[in-house]
Amino acid sequence: MFLVIGYFIGGTFPVSNFTGAVKESNIVIQPQQPQQMQQTVKLQIPSFAPSRGSDSAQLNIVEFGDYQCPFCGRFFQQSEPQIKQDYVDTGKAKFYFLDFQFLGPDSQTLGQGAWCANDQGKYYDYHDYSYSHQGQENSGWATPDKLKALAVNISGFDTAKFDSCLDSKKYEARVQQLTQIGQGLGVSGTPTIFIGNDQKEYISVVGAQPYDVFKQVIDKQLG
């Protein structure tokens, strides 16, 4: 009985309506039939996605997250700094954050804000600032007006440019597209972190798991 519950709640049961390869502009996703215990997926990271770390890094760590999700906040505070220190800053891996904004309208706004920040080369400054100042989900801490007020505090930010970009909803479709791509990959909760590369494919880790879990998967993929 609990295995069945686990399948549903743990998100490994194939409940998504994914039926095959998904083509989204320059993104191709092909799920693998599980031949081993951990399911692997093929993932081509969108060319427009900014990353942290060296371009020559052999591994990619791709997080699908929601800026309002408290567990993404936990991952940001607990495991991400150590992953960054041990693997990203040492040139072994590149880190990507991609949108899976599903918790409400403010998540969409936050996701769009990230891409507006990216226009100024501040994608990860915005990412760090948003998670460092995360409020309770859907409590109104990230309405467009509140977000504009928050963005003032990011150093070197052109707030007028940011406000205008956010008001234009220029990146609404991109946020939705990335969320759909996550669904196509079988993402059923945030954060879901894919670790791998084109050759080895990607292993996913669901949730704000301890650093040692990520270390185990990253070391396996590096080895």
């Binding site: 295995l3 709640i9 743990g10 081993q36 399911q39 292993i203 704000a208 301890p210 040692d212 879990v213």
Partner: peptide
Amino acid sequence: ILANNFATFVTLLGLNSPPKLFIEVVTNG
């Protein structure tokens, strides 16, 4: 806790992870 972290347990089983990591996932959960 296990039921709600099932996907992680499956991944760790596939990697032949040490038992202490499973306990860590439960306490962290």
